[in-house]
Design a protein around this nucleic acid. Structure first.
Lengths: 395, 395
DNA sequence: CTTCTTTCATTGACGGCGGAAAAGAACAGC
DNA sequence: GCTGTTCTTTTCCGCCGTCAATGAAAGAAG
């Protein structure tokens, strides 16, 4: 049906080879000796691991002849040939499906999105299949095979099983989404929680590169958190972790849908902000954008709401930092559009609530275009592709 | 000087051998095929790894002929010979030094403690040396060498460097304690944070055996938390983690020495409870024991204080569970003496604050005799001994 | 009592990964 | 061209762990 070849196996014979590949993937062009140093291997081992990868076309010697250190034999940097393989990432939200086509370096080549009419698994599945088909057609234009597809869904997701255990937004329970999408697309599919997927993208291709302990905090419709500890994404014993949204910031705060009061999400997530701005100003604020406008125009009530939200976010981040001592916390999400309104409060609250050396933790904000969520899904697919048919992550 | 031989090397030639040994250490007597299954190795590999360990006397075939499954060749369980080696664990508190002599299975053989007159490093060092010497003499009686010494100190400890970075209670900064104790005792020394040491003991010899994700929460003079994620104790990027004591439970709560209000420690730690009981009852309560008495006698004010403390602890634990999704939380510490007074509140607060599957997390209380802290230190020494001269943990 | 079956343990051959060391390759400077 | 330097590759070797076959120790079956 399609002219592009079907999924092939990644030639990472040994764990060391996979590790070296991900090192190059994350740390740009590297000479073989650099790889050896970073991966803790001998130069000989690197040579042997790299050769089949070059032969298979996944790595290439960098023709770039810049920046010689001028003494001795010139180094021969190696980089990942991003164009060697393509991947599809799909993010399912409550009202939209976003899909991207990325290359092996997780650079977005094409992005699409369609509104979601129904949350019925069948309808969603059809939309995913249609979008995937579209992107597969696009991929034909590159003459490169699509090697995998990642799906990111919020909620409780069992990546190993490829199943959605429970998704409140979509009202799904125990749905074997991986299998289903595999059947309709014919691609190897990886299903993961959306925040974890984003965290994987940051770990391999973003601000978490090279860090063994960091956190990603997303602010938007909800407040989420992805954690990397000991170099691996935390999934928790029951498949759920990083529920920062329901850390109680203020027991006397507004009620949260979880049944408690003053959860971070009940103070700083978009719906909470909208509600609070409405209450504070008495105006019929409909959505986050309007609330933002009001605050930008200097409305004191609205500004106060954002200040409080920033304070809550800062405290929540401090809680994470106190517990895990990460090297960095990456703050992201659609809510970041309002960053200028609460940046100060976030930093202040963090500084005052972080205890001891936890305060040394680096706070970093990253604008998060909406495609980024889908890119995260693609990153999980890349991860699965590299670590072989056995699902799971590494580095 | 002493008749017992000096520290020898542990014959774990390969990582697999060390892993097998720790498996047997934690999971009692095991047949070789069990080990193979648990460690994910072939039976052949187990045989080869076990032999030198038996020859060296660290493992022994279990003579116990019970419980035959009645078909086929009888299994030949292997266990660790606890009597093969001894270790010393030392816990330094603000006013006391506790030391224990344990065997290889971390069973306490002898326990000693001395009051601490001065917190000057020199004086503490002398006390440690004296205690260690005493225990070494005791060890002579067993005719078995002492293979290592562990020291547990609260505060910011760099285990790899064997240095205390900062200890608020002792008022130490950047003290190379490991080197110093090594010089005075001649033993290989491991220095670690006290809560982490306790966590190691639970991971290898306690309620954390076999779990890859769990937490230890200690309630007493302070509130501490040790975390195990992905099978390894979390130390944080800057050497500090698990600072659950300064998670803010109630922003309007009592002030904490850290500068914030309503930290868990400012509500539920012993000093906070004493203060609160004093305020609530107007009586001159001097210490935790008296506060406990009052509450046990039914004083409503005191009971209310404990109820609030339990609530704070439960919320703090829920925060950990929400963020990390551990399989189990082990609650321990001297403050557990009052467990009957706040058990209900802990469970209630946990249940209501834990979100989703995090509530499936198993809450377990463990009475913690004071020696246990020192035993934790011994556990770190055992860990160092097994994983070789290179400091650090595994499993 | 012998033989079979079952399960646990051991042995020896094999393969593969990774390391050490030496050789090779590419370039700058003299 | 020679030399020194640095990066890379080659060759050889050791070692670990698996595979497959063998041995060992029972109870069950005849």
């Amino acid at each position: 049906m399609r002219s592009t070849p079907r999924a092939e196996a990644f030639p990472a014979h040994t764990p060391a080879a996979a590790q070296i590949f991900t090192t190059v993937l994350s740390h740009g062009p590297l000479t073989r000796s650099d790889m050896a140093a970073r991966a803790g291997l001998s130069a000989a081992a690197v040579t042997k691991a790299v050769r089949p990868l070059i032969e298979a076309g996944y790595l290439m010697e960098d023709a770039d002849d810049e920046a010689r250190p001028s003494l001795g034999r010139p180094a021969n940097p190696v980089r990942v040939d991003g164009g060697r393989a393509l991947f599809i990432g799909v993010k399912v939200t409550a009202d939209e499906i976003i899909a991207v086509l990325t290359d092996l370096c997780c650079r977005i080549r094409v992005a699409r999105h369609v509104p979601l009419e129904s949350r019925e698994p069948k309808a969603v599945l059809a939309s995913i299949a249609a979008l995937a088909q579209e992107l597969l057609t696009e991929a034909d234009g590159f003459g490169v095979p699509v090697q995998g597809l990642g799906v990111a869904v919020s909620g409780d997701v069992d990546r190993a099983a490829g199943a959605v255990r429970f998704s409140p937004f979509l009202e799904w329970r125990d749905l074997p989404l991986g299998e289903l999408v595999e059947m309709t697309t014919g691609l190897p599919v990886t299903v993961d929680n959306d925040v974890r997927a984003l965290t994987v993208a940051e770990q391999w291709f973003g601000a978490g590169v090279g860090l063994s302990d960091f956190a990603v905090v997303t602010v938007g419709a909800g407040i989420g958190c992805g954690l990397v500890v000991h170099g691996k994404v935390v999934s928790g014993a029951h498949g759920v972790a990083g529920e920062i949204g329901h850390v109680v910031i203020d027991p006397t705060g507004p009620p949260c849908h979880c049944g408690n009061r003053g959860c971070a999400e009940a103070i700083a997530a978009d719906p909470a902000i909208v509600t609070a701005v409405r209450t504070a100003t008495g105006l019929p604020v409909a959505d986050a954008a309007q609330a933002l406008d009001l605050a930008r125009q200097g409305d004191p009530g609205a500004r106060e709401v954002y200040a409080r939200a920033g304070d809550a976010i800062g405290r929540a981040i401090a809680t994470v930092a106190n517990l895990l001592g990460p090297e960095r916390v990456i703050i992201s999400g659609e809510g970041l559009a309002a960053y200028d309104l609460f940046a100060e409060q976030i930093r202040d609250a963090f500084a005052s609530s972080a205890f001891g050396t936890a305060a040394q933790c680096d706070l970093l904000t990253r604008p998060l275009p909406f495609d980024e969520w889908a890119r995260g899904a693609a990153a999980t697919a890349i991860q699965s592709f590299i670590s072989g048919p056995t699902r799971g992550g590494k580095e």
